[in-house]
Nucleic acid binder design. Structure first.
Lengths: 334, 334
DNA sequence: CCTCTCAATGAAATCGATATCATTGCTTTC
DNA sequence: GAAAGCAATGATATCGATTTCATTGAGAGG
């Protein structure tokens, strides 16, 4: 690969002029510009991003840290972010933690050492990492996408999951369901608690008493959790007539189990999920869900990041609150 | 962030010694080692990957270039690669081209400027880029994952798509289907042609004549293509009794359309796909498909890359041929 | 006791860019 | 016509690491 020195020599100018040509073209005379341009083309030169970053202490890379790529929601988030990031001329790297704190710490180290321009962190729920995150936020621009309402020390986009699950639950109630079950995942995390509260409080408000036998918590945010939970409900002497699922993946699994068990959807049992992942439309019946404005969330996250990169705002913490929107399909209304 | 200089000062040694401590610890005396280790811990120092890469001209980053993240197959590929890459201590960045040649060129530029350690390219079918790829392969380690049997100038993993579709078609024939349709995507690409040949030649070998009315090519590798094609077939005076789909995504869409149209699966119409994506198990009925050894492909791709990185092998082109394995589900056999 | 290794360390060049400061001609202005 | 301003360019320090080469001191061998 040709370097700036080679270009300078070929164009018979100093490296400084070539650098100027690259970064502030009108500071160099038209004729010189011509010569440099030609040399660059001839040598097929393109500046080393490494060297530029080294000198300017900035890169054009954004990191997205999520738990696992098997969770389809993250794929949508990633896709949305990819677009947003691209629009700013940055590129995006993906890191997964698989819910391990040590993996997260390793990733944080990686990201700082590589001078990423910023980091976006999607719905991590490792409990003991708030401190690490705060330290990270001190080092470089960081935006959290979170369901934790108490997050106040780091820029974040707060998705009201409690509200989302509440809306889903209320919907099942509104279509006349009386025994509504709940399937969650990732117990002991803030997000899990929030969602469960959304479910339980809505039932209570409607005069129902949440039945512990109608609540199942799996480990993974994965359709297998939905299948497992639903299979358990079907074995009950008194089956539920509705199932609220913490995520769409889980809802898909629930529906699959109902189909396998030849249970009528939505007559016998209706199902609702949460997230609004795009592949939902490839299933039949389609899952009623609470759709998140993922693209908007991604855009905003990127925007917040860029503000920090440019040091625009004062040191205040930024926060965006978003809620999902109920989208009814034939898993709850025929 | 602390630099190597700070550490040197704090430990009262030269930067050279700190560097030695980092890269060849036994070249420094135990006592000195102690002091340096302590200083590093105290200053929370970790070497700038940028500076290291700049000096050594190597990074620990691998790039994966694919067409689009909405194609679920790529997600599996990405996941498999993520694991392989991780095992070597590298990290992975994802780039998408959305089937645009210019986007691919931009990505290639990006990847070379950023000194990626290697690039893996998954099933691109932009026609006019072979030259660009060859130039890229000259600059840095590159492995293609491809369905193009004629690829011979760049290290590659060749997936025999023709065989895969042939196996799927033969399977539908073997269960007694007589009018087998085909839905493909991305026309005018090598991969598309290969697959179609797999379909047509198998029919012919069995004494059938491929009926042009039973062949549909959509634009995107997406379930909507499957829905569209299938809807067309259902409108035919003589419907097919089996559908072979070029990819699982398409197969899923086909099944969805059949379900919506209340067509019996597999009795009236059986469906088969190709790829073996992992989310297949979340659908009901499940799609009969030809499963690819994705993890093995990813491992091998990474292995090939590492060989090039270390300059181990002579300049010979490497090639691995893989075939898919038929996996029968209830979309073809009740 | 003097040279010779060899282990341990330091000084300085280097990677490929950017940024600061200095220099060189010209034009402008009084 | 001399001082000043300005446009265009060059020389060089710098980012944070690695690497080569030089230096030092201690123990081995004669």
């Amino acid at each position: 690969m040709a370097t700036i020195k080679d270009v300078a020599k070929a164009a018979n100018v100093s490296v400084a002029s070539v650098s100027r040509y690259l970064n502030a073209p009108d500071m160099v005379k038209a004729e010189t510009r011509q010569r440099i341009a030609e040399a660059i083309k001839r040598l097929d030169y393109s500046p080393s991003a490494l060297a530029v970053s080294m000198r300017t202490r900035q890169t054009q890379n954004i990191a997205l840290i999520i738990q696992s790529i098997t969770n389809m929601y993250y794929i949508d988030l990633y896709g949305a972010l990819l677009e947003a990031v691209d629009r700013y001329g940055y590129s995006l790297s993906l890191f997964t933690t698989e819910r391990s704190e040590s993996a997260l710490r390793k990733t944080i180290d990686n990201v700082t050492r590589n001078n990423y321009a910023g980091v976006i962190l999607g719905f991590l729920d490792e409990p003991g990492v708030q401190r690490d995150l705060e330290r990270l936020a001190q080092t470089l621009p960081l935006v959290l996408i979170t369901c934790d309402p108490s997050q106040a020390t780091i820029d974040n986009i707060f998705l009201d999951a409690r509200d989302g699950i509440s809306v889903a639950t209320a919907h099942l109630l509104s279509i006349g369901k009386k025994r509504i079950a709940y399937i969650g995942a990732a117990p002991n995390s803030v997000i899990s608690t929030e969602k469960y509260i959304g479910y339980a409080s809505t039932l209570e408000k409607a005069g129902h008493v949440p039945d512990p036998k109608l609540v199942f918590h799996g480990l993974r945010q994965h359709f297998s959790t939905g299948m497992e939970g639903t299979a358990g409900f079907l074995a009950l002497p008194r089956r539920p007539d509705g199932i609220v699922c913490a995520t769409d993946d889980i809802g898909i699994g629930s529906i699959k189990q109902l189909l396998v068990g030849k249970v009528g959807i939505p007559d016998e049992i209706a199902v609702a999920g949460f997230n609004g992942i795009s592949v939902l439309h490839s299933y039949e019946p389609e899952l009623t869900t609470v759709v998140q404005p993922v693209q908007m969330m991604a855009d905003t996250a990127m925007h917040m990041l860029m503000d920090r990169v440019k040091g625009v705002p004062p040191r205040a913490i930024r926060r965006l609150v978003v809620k999902g929107k109920l989208t009814v399909s034939n898993s709850s209304v025929a």
